[in-house]
Design a protein around this nucleic acid. Structure first.
Lengths: 214, 214
DNA sequence: ATACGTTTGAAACAACTGTTTAAAACAAAG
DNA sequence: CTTTGTTTTAAACAGTTGTTTCAAACGTAT
């Protein structure tokens, strides 16, 4: 059992448990039990619980943002210089999200990770918000400015908020995905997988951002 | 200092602190300190911390749902029987939300309460979801069916999810309202009050739900 | 004033939290 | 084999949590 195994197993266990129970509700003991490692391993390898939380995010977000950046590079160099289509940008986001865990054994990780993002924004004393802001703001700013050029007739302020409405629609939906899916299955007899919901989400976001009604 | 005072002061303190720090991060001692009551008062008057959390929600949700129900009654009895306009339904929701705290000393309570709703859906072991479901599902179902009749050309399943996309956009936005407002103020030099954001949110939701693009 | 049910107060309780310690086990290199 | 640095282990630590206890204070009717 090498060090790689211990660190990776802790991250896997933490990722799952955090998404299920939240950060403060998840104890280090439940994490180390699930990972089959000693309790002290977390503090030895990560320093503190707070650092472990950030490491869970970094493991997903670093490759994701790198991939998104390169996809945006390819898109910007190949498009006509005149206009940027909102539909195309959302397509890149969706595609990158799905591609970021190609080959991953756990296909539910997108859903798990969006739940974590939701927690990061609601729970906690804001230390996760700060962490996300200071580490991934370049990629975030880039998305905003791309959407800006694709929607020049919407004020910067209105667009800013519409983007966060869209983020909220996505994060909230996946935060309570299992209970919502259960309701849909019972009341509507409809089985919706995570990709199904993303496919329904995209046109909702497009309609919301594009809406020109007062 | 009567019992009413004690109970009410605990609810006020809890409401504020829960919204600021989350449910598990808020200790009973911080609540009783802020309310200027003895620590044991919470368990005496509410039985447990869990019951206190539910009482906080009930105090807001009971009058709100009652008002919303009567507003929907008035609307349904006065409209043309043919169609129900989405715009009108959203207007009622907005109006009821604002009217539900007319005369309240704290005008920020809508914002506070939407933050709490966000926490109830992300944090916790789901006991709040169950509480909300079992106590307010009639009103919720009614909204869904009203929107159903106003959008007959969208499948029930798609509409179900679009409603939750809209709920998510609202809840998430208000959950992280202060940090988002700070960013908007700094980067865009724009001052947005809570009502301003609701006014921007409504057209976003309308566009999202109405969108007929594939 | 007396007695009674309700509410408050200070203190203690037991359980659980993240973190630290120091010894043991291990792996790799000389 | 011995040495060196790293990793794991079991135990303990100090602090905080929600809850309980029981006596004191209160209000109200008799």
């Amino acid at each position: 059992m090498t060090q790689q195994d211990t660190v990776g197993r802790i991250l896997n266990a933490a990722e799952t448990l955090f998404a299920e129970k939240g950060f403060t509700e998840t104890t280090l003991r439940s994490i180390t039990d699930r990972a089959n490692v000693n309790l002290a391993a977390v503090n030895y390898h990560f320093g503190s619980k707070k650092s472990l939380i950030q490491a869970v995010f970094a493991r997903f977000l670093n490759p994701f943002c790198a991939l998104l950046d390169s996809n945006l590079d390819a898109f910007e160099s190949s498009r006509t210089h005149e206009s940027t289509d909102l539909h195309a940008v959302l397509g890149i986001l969706e595609e990158t999200l799905i591609a970021s865990l190609k080959g991953d054994t756990n296909q539910e990780r997108v859903s798990v990770f969006l739940q974590l993002l939701g927690l990061a924004y609601t729970e906690s004393q804001g230390h996760m918000r700060r962490f996300l802001k200071s580490n991934y703001h370049q990629t975030y700013n880039r998305i905003v400015s791309v959407l800006q050029t694709s929607n020049p007739d919407i004020s910067a302020n209105a667009l800013f908020w519409r983007i966060h409405f869209a983020v909220g629609a996505m994060i909230f939906t996946f935060s309570s995905l299992e209970s919502l899916s259960a309701i849909a299955a019972k009341d509507l007899k409809a089985q919706n997988s995570a990709p199904d919901i993303v496919k329904m989400l995209i046109p909702f976001i497009e309609g919301g951002i594009n809406n020109r009604i007062a």
